[in-house]
Every structure is written in structure tokens, then in C-alpha cells.
């Protein structure tokens, strides 16, 4: 009986494929894309100001609300933060990823990769709130800054209106530090994977042909690992765009997209506007990827 069944499947490889693919596909389409679609639909409804009820009629007026000055500012603030977090993550990650991919011994590589991912094992909330303590006015970071006599520098940085504040924990600068820390593994791993696929002989060939290390980096290593940087930046950028915990815990009272969505769908009960604001990051990511493709980021894939 079992033999006959396996023979039956052996003769129908397509059927086997579909049987295996059906459950994850079903999940993807119904739960994952379905919820996104529901979001999209909701973003075209609007809320009746008088009754506070959702009116299920197609309208673009909810989207129009995104472009009020207050909301525009939220978008700009969040996108700017995501941009700088992404740049900083890439710059910090690259040397580490390069070391893991090219120099570390097999043993050390395992330990370093564990080290990079260990923060992901503990609760994200705990880590964010412990950073609140680290960055606090009397926190451990300011202790070390004072120890090295750099408090003047810190005060100078915090005096900027755009990213400063009364302490690191209450400033966009502190938020930036925490964002970079939290998303760093998502940048290191894709870059390391991409670098792993650059054969050492290419680096040797470049230097053999007269290129100094920096030239080799610019003409061979960076272009070949750039898809990894882009992959990592998709994580850091989109995760920063959507996060609402870190802006809540760290920084000043100015809203980020995530917080706005959170409050609109919660206390305000304005599901359509929350949905429309969620579509913002989606649109930003689509534009981001199109630009990246245009710039040739995926040519070496």
C-alpha cells in the first residue's frame, strides 16, 4: 500500500510540489497578503467626524490627511531617522562583517555570529528599556563620558535643536543610538553572507593588477557585496519606519510614524487613517527599492 502510494507520487512530481507548497502558500496569501490587503481597503475608507464611525465608502480624503503639515512632519522625521540609522548601521557593520567573512577562523566565525545574534535572544522591550537607563542623565554612558572628560562634547551635541535634548535618553540622538544597536544584526548578517560569496581570488587579482587595498574595496569588494548592503538596509530602514516602541521609550515627545499609527488605531479609533499611514512606509520602501535597482545595486546578484 505504501509502496503503491510512493510510486503514485513518484510519477506525479507536480502533485508532490503542490502538496508541499499549498500550506505555506495558503498562509502567505490569506494571512499575510490578506491582512495587507485589508489594510489597503481600510485606508480608502474614512471616519465620520461627527459620529466617530467608519464610513465604508471609497474616498481619498483619508490620504489627504497624511499631507497635513503635522503628518508630513512625522513622515519626514521618521524617514530621516531611518536614513541615518541605515547609513550608520552599514558603516558599522561592514568592517565587522568583512572580518567575519574573510579573516575569522571557522571557530571564531561561529562565536562571532553567535555574538552578533545573542541580543536577538532576549526581549526587545527589555533591551530598549535598559538602553533608557544606559542613556539616562545619571546613566553609565554619561559616567564614562565624564570619565574621559568628554562631557563638553556631549553637551555641545545635545544643544542642537534638531537632534539634541536635555539628556541622551530624551533626545533623537539617543534614539538613533538605540535604533542602530537594535537593528545592527539585521545589517551584519546580509553583508557577511554577501562577502562570503566574494572569492578571495578576486581580491588577490585586484591587488595583483595594481590596486591598493582602498581601490580594491571601491572597485571589487563594495560593488560585489552591495546587494547585501541593500538587503540589510531594507531591514534597518523599514524596521525603523514602522517601530513605535523605541520612539515611545527614548527621545522627546515628537511623534514617529509607528506612534502615530498606534495612537490612531487605538485611542483615536481612526482605523482608516492608521491604515493610510501604514501604507506610507510601504510606498517609501517600494520607491527605495526601485531607486536601488536603478542604481545597479542588484546587478551583481
Amino acid at each position: 500500500m505504501l509502496t503503491r502510494l510512493s510510486t503514485y507520487f513518484y510519477q506525479r512530481p507536480k502533485l508532490v510540489l503542490w502538496l508541499f507548497l499549498a500550506p505555506p502558500m495558503l498562509y502567505m496569501v490569506v494571512v499575510y497578503l490578506g491582512s495587507l490587503f485589508a489594510l489597503l481597503i481600510n485606508s480608502f475608507y474614512y471616519i465620520d467626524d461627527f459620529t466617530g464611525l467608519i464610513v465604508r465608502e471609497f474616498t481619498l480624503q483619508t490620504y489627504a490627511q497624511i499631507f497635513t503639515p503635522a503628518n508630513r512632519e512625522i513622515f519626514t522625521r521618521t524617514a530621516t531617522m531611518a536614513f541615518f540609522v541605515t547609513i550608520a548601521s552599514a558603516i558599522i557593520s561592514f568592517p565587522l562583517a568583512y572580518y567575519i567573512a574573510k579573516y575569522a577562523s571557522r571557530r571564531l566565525k561561529t562565536w562571532l555570529l553567535i555574538g552578533v545574534t545573542i541580543p536577538l535572544w532576549s526581549s526587545y522591550l527589555v533591551r530598549v528599556y535598559s538602553w533608557k537607563l544606559i542613556l539616562a542623565q545619571e546613566g553609565i554612558l554619561s559616567y564614562f563620558i565624564n570619565l574621559f572628560g568628554l562631557s563638553g562634547l556631549l553637551e555641545w551635541l545635545l544643544s542642537f535643536e534638531s537632534f539634541g535634548g536635555s539628556s541622551l535618553a530624551l533626545s533623537p540622538l539617543g534614539m538613533f543610538i538605540v535604533f542602530v544597536y537594535i537593528w545592527l544584526p539585521y545589517m551584519i548578517i546580509p553583508i557577511q553572507t554577501a562577502l562570503e560569496r566574494v572569492p578571495n581570488s578576486l581580491v588577490e587579482a585586484s591587488s595583483d593588477l595594481g590596486a591598493r587595498p582602498l581601490q580594491t574595496f571601491r572597485t571589487v569588494i563594495l560593488p560585489m557585496s552591495f546587494p547585501g548592503v541593500i538587503a540589510g538596509s531594507i531591514f534597518t530602514f523599514s524596521l525603523t519606519l514602522g517601530d513605535f516602541i523605541i520612539p515611545l521609550a527614548i527621545g522627546n515627545s515628537k511623534f514617529f510614524i509607528g506612534q502615530a499609527v498606534y495612537s490612531y488605531q487605538g485611542t483615536a479609533g481612526n482605523i482608516p487613517l492608521a491604515a493610510a499611514m501604514t501604507m506610507g512606509p510601504v510606498a517609501i520602501m517600494i520607491i527605495y527599492l526601485l531607486v536601488a535597482r536603478k542604481l545597479g545595486a542588484f546587478d551583481a546578484l
Partner: peptide, 20 residues
């Protein structure tokens, strides 16, 4: 001397052509 300061060039076993 580092490779980039020697007027010696190499044809690699795997050719090591730049794929991009």
C-alpha cells in the same frame, strides 16, 4: 613588497574574472 607594487601579473586557476 605587496602585490600591487610588483610588476608581476597572475593568471589564476579559477581565472578570478570580476563578475560585475
Amino acid at each position: 613588497l605587496p602585490p600591487y607594487e610588483r610588476s608581476v601579473n597572475t593568471v589564476f586557476q579559477d581565472y578570478a574574472l570580476f563578475p560585475h
